[in-house]
């Protein structure tokens, strides 16, 4: 039975320089990996006999207070048989391209977790089947709430937020896809259909 530290060493042996850093904190083993080969590594960890990290505990991201530090996407992996946990991190340069490959094809459980990271941090997951905001509404345009540059009370005053909420179209809460299914779209009032067709979704500039 391999420990998490041995798994991390095996990963480094298999992928060489794509493994950026191995560390431990409070007894947890952490491996930082390069964005380009992250998906391949996660697949390797999941499918290689002896590793068997078959359970994706969590996907999240960390934005540090120090603006120079990269934003990290964090995967918590677990092997149910071996009872071992491993944390994989992908550091992303905040001024650069914030995108990583989705692991939805490996773990279906990543669907909503990655959507939440997208919603809260603005990290895009390529090849994700349905990358939409999940906790915030789809027309939310203030930014990404869990980033450190997002103020605790939001960018707008309470009065402005109320004004925007009242100014939004109620149909903005339905996605085009939902409304275009079958008969529902035809039953809408003409003006509403027009607004939807022209892409006006109640966004306040």
């Amino acid at each position: 039975m391999m420990t998490a530290r041995e798994s991390a060493a095996a990963l480094a042996a298999a992928f060489g320089t794509a493994v950026l850093r191995r560390s431990e904190s409070c007894g947890d083993t952490i491996v930082s990996v390069a964005r380009e080969s992250a998906h391949e590594m996660l697949q390797w960890l999941k499918e290689t006999p002896g590793q068997d990290f078959d359970y994706l505990t969590d996907v999240t991201a960390v934005d540090y207070r120090d603006p120079g530090q990269p934003l990290e996407v964090v995967y918590q992996l677990r092997s149910l048989q071996r009872k071992v946990d491993l944390r994989i991190k992908i550091p992303l340069d905040k001024s650069g391209d914030l995108s990583v490959d989705s692991v939805w094809d490996l773990w279906k459980g990543a669907d909503w977790l990655e959507r939440e990271v997208f919603d809260m941090f603005g990290v895009t997951f390529t090849n994700h089947p349905d990358l939409r905001r999940i906790l915030m509404w789809e027309t939310y345009r203030e930014g990404f709430p869990l980033r450190k540059d997002f103020p605790l009370r939001g960018h707008y005053s309470r009065a402005e937020q109320t004004r925007q909420a009242l100014g939004a179209n109620p149909e903005a809460h339905y996605s085009m896809e939902e409304l275009s299914i079958a008969a529902a779209y035809d039953d809408l009032p003409d003006d509403m259909r027009e607004r939807l067709a022209t892409g006006e979704r109640g966004e306040v500039k």
Partner: peptide
Amino acid sequence: VRWRIRPPSFI
């Protein structure tokens, strides 16, 4: 710096 909840009902 970060307090993440792994929410069982969400997943």
